[in-house]
C-alpha cells in the first residue's frame, strides 16, 4: 500500500496496465513528453516509448476516430480528452461508431477502449472547463460510463475499464484530484493523504464496473451521488447530524440498481445529487428508477439537487455549485415531508 492522490492512482493504473499488456496505447493532447495537463500520464512515454504514449493534434474527433481504428486493429487505446468540455467534437465517433460497433457488426468488430476525461467544476474553470456531460453518454447505447470518487476506486475502476471488452467513458472529477473536496469551499481542503481511500495498492487490482459502494450507512434517507458529490453528501450528513445512507454509484451505466433499491426501501426517502444541469440529467433517470421500484416504500417525494440549467458561470461558481447548503435544504424537505 502507498498513499496516493487521485492523479497518482490513475497514473499507477496506466503504468500497471501498460506493463502487463503491450497492446495498450495512451494518446491525447499533451499526454506524451509532458504527461498531461493534470499529470495523469506523467512518465509513461519515458518508460514505454513514444509509440505507446504520445501527443495528438488538438482534434478530439480525430483522436476518437483514430483511436477507434487502433482498437479495430487490435490495440487497446486509453485516450485522454483534456477536458470533458472538449469532448463534443468527438461525439459522433464515440456515439455513432464506438458505441455501436459491436451491435452493427453482430460482434465481428469490437472496441475495447477507454475515453478518460477530467470533468466537473469547482476549480474556477468557467463554462468551458467545468461541465459534467455524463448524461449525454448515459443516454446512448453501448457505452459504459464510470465516475470514481477516490484514489482507490479511481485506480481499480480504470483498470477494470481498460480490461472491459466495450468502450468506457471514464470521467474524473478534477476538483477531487488532490483532495476530497466536500463543497465547503471557504475551508481548507484536506489532502488525500489523510483519507483511508488514499491507501492504494501499488500493483494490479480491480474495482468492478456496475457496482456501487455504500459510502456511509444510514437509516433515515438515501443520498444517491457520484464523483465530487459523494464528499458533499458525506460532509452534509455529518454537519447536519442526519442519519443518511450515502450511495456512491461509481458506474452510472450500467447502474447498480440492486444497491439503490435496497437502500431506498430501507430508508423510505431519497435525495439525488449531481453537479450537471438538472433537465434531462442522470438524476431524472435515477428518480424514475426509484419511483418505479420503491414507490410504496417512499415516505416523501424524491428530491433532486443539481447544477442549474445555465452554463457554468465563472464568478458565480459557488452559487452554481450544488454544495452542502443546497443539499441540506433538500434533505430537510425529504425528511419533513
Amino acid at each position: 500500500m502507498t498513499v496516493m492522490n487521485m492523479i497518482e492512482a490513475l497514473n499507477s493504473a496506466h503504468d500497471v496496465m501498460m506493463g502487463r499488456d503491450p497492446d495498450i496505447v495512451v494518446m491525447g493532447e499533451d499526454v506524451g513528453y509532458f504527461g498531461g495537463v493534470f499529470r495523469v500520464t506523467a512518465g509513461l512515454q519515458k518508460k514505454y516509448g513514444k509509440t505507446r504514449a504520445f501527443d495528438t493534434p488538438i482534434a478530439e474527433g480525430g483522436i476518437a476516430g483514430t483511436a477507434i481504428g487502433m482498437a479495430a486493429y487490435g490495440l487497446k487505446p486509453v485516450v485522454e480528452m483534456q477536458f470533458a468540455d472538449y469532448i463534443y467534437p468527438a461525439f459522433d465517433q464515440i456515439v455513432s461508431e464506438a458505441g455501436r460497433m459491436r451491435y452493427r457488426t453482430a460482434g465481428e468488430w469490437t472496441l475495447p477502449m477507454v475515453f478518460r476525461s477530467p470533468y466537473g467544476g469547482g476549480i474556477f474553470g468557467g463554462q468551458t472547463h467545468s461541465q459534467s456531460p455524463e448524461a449525454l453518454f448515459a443516454h446512448v447505447c453501448g457505452i459504459k460510463t464510470v465516475i470514481p470518487s477516490n484514489p482507490y476506486d479511481a485506480k481499480g475502476l480504470l483498470i477494470a475499464a481498460i480490461e472491459d471488452p466495450d468502450p468506457v467513458i471514464f470521467f474524473e472529477p478534477k476538483r477531487i484530484y488532490n483532495g476530497p473536496f466536500d463543497g465547503f469551499h471557504e475551508r481548507p481542503v484536506t489532502p488525500w493523504a489523510k483519507h483511508p481511500a488514499a491507501e492504494v495498492p501499488e500493483g494490479y487490482y480491480t474495482v468492478p464496473l456496475g457496482k456501487a459502494a455504500v459510502a456511509r450507512e444510514g437509516n433515515d434517507v438515501t443520498i444517491l451521488a457520484y464523483g465530487t458529490m459523494v464528499h458533499v453528501a458525506l460532509a452534509t450528513a455529518e454537519e447536519q447530524g442526519i442519519d443518511a445512507e450515502v450511495i456512491d454509484l461509481r458506474t452510472i451505466v450500467p447502474v447498480d440498481i440492486d444497491t439503490i433499491e435496497a437502500s431506498v426501501k430501507k430508508t423510505g426517502r431519497c435525495v439525488i445529487i449531481h453537479e450537471a444541469t438538472r433537465t434531462g440529467g442522470f438524476g431524472a433517470e435515477l428518480a424514475a428508477l426509484v419511483q418505479e421500484r420503491c414507490f410504496y416504500h417512499l415516505e416523501a417525494p424524491v428530491q433532486r439537487v443539481t447544477g442549474y440549467d445555465t452554463p457554468y458561470p465563472h464568478s458565480l461558481e459557488w452559487t452554481y455549485f450544488p454544495g452542502p447548503t443546497r443539499l441540506g435544504i433538500a434533505l430537510k424537505k425529504a425528511l419533513e415531508d
Binding site: 483514430t66 481504428g69 487502433m70 486493429y73
Partner: peptide, 8 residues
C-alpha cells in the same frame, strides 16, 4: 480517421 488509426 478510423482507417488512419488502423494504419497507425
Amino acid at each position: 480517421p478510423q482507417a488512419v488509426g488502423w494504419a497507425m
